[in-house]
């Protein structure tokens, strides 16, 4: 059997990512810092691993909450004019 056939065995895909690797990758997947192949392997693992699946969904929910609920503060009205003023006073503009 050639080496090539060995690596092409279909079950290799499922075995490829260990639980520990998955935990390490979780944030990188959420932050979109992995290549499409790694992402696919990660999602293959999620199908078989309940703890990872739960953790992934929880982390996603926290990210979404941070984005939607940490409200933006209004910039004070005078800030931009004061910046412009300081720059022209410094003789720069």
């Amino acid at each position: 059997m050639s080496l090539k056939n060995d690596t092409d065995k279909p079950y290799m895909k499922q075995d490829a990512l260990s639980h520990d690797d998955c935990v390490k990758m979780l944030y990188q997947v959420i932050d979109n810092e992995v290549c499409p192949e790694e992402k696919e392997r990660f999602h293959e693992h999620l199908k078989m691993c309940m703890p990872c699946f739960k953790e992934y969904n929880l982390e996603k929910a926290i990210r979404n909450m941070i984005r939607s609920k940490c409200k933006k503060r209004e910039v004070p009205n005078d800030l931009v004019s004061s910046i412009k003023g300081k720059i022209s006073n410094s003789g720069a503009v």
Binding site: V23, P51, N57, M65, K69, C70, K71
Partner: peptide, 23 residues
């Protein structure tokens, strides 16, 4: 640092929190 911290936090609990709590 890569250890998994497991909490009993659930998705629904997080989604029920208000902005101030997250902030």
């Amino acid at each position: 640092v890569d250890e998994a911290i497991t909490t009993d936090l659930r998705v629904e609990t997080v989604q029920d929190m208000i902005g101030d709590e997250i902030s």
